[in-house]
Amino acid sequence: MSRPYTCTMALAAAAALAAVSLRAQSQAPPPEQTVEVTAERFAFQPSEITVAVGTTLTVVLKSDDTTHGFRIKGEGVNVQIPKRGRGTTTVTFTPARAGKYTFECSRICGAGHGFMRGTIVAVEPSGEAK
């Protein structure tokens, strides 16, 4: 095999590898964040979750007592959290813009039901919430 031909093949292989690598980088999955949230009369813990814009937030919800609900207001997320010992519910939410998203219990759970609220704070990668 001639030397120029070998060099050409080597360059082509390197270019192909670089292209595959770049393509892989451009198709990297969006960042993810998982938070476990416990619901009990009458609070979510934690009640404040900070996440970067564009990050897929996975919230694993568990109850310490009765059935609760978890609704992110205005975002079409509304699920039921099973009673204590009956497992967990998982929701995913990807904030598209920086800001504060209110979540709350959507199933009446007792006298202090109205206090069961919390906030997802979506921040720009620079760390600022609008």
Partner: peptide, 20 residues
């Protein structure tokens, strides 16, 4: 909030459902 309110004093006054 306005109306008939639970006074926010103590553990049980606002959280008094029997199973808890």
């Amino acid at each position: 909030r306005a109306g008939m309110l639970l006074m926010p004093v103590g553990i049980l006054n606002e959280r008094h459902e029997p199973p808890v």
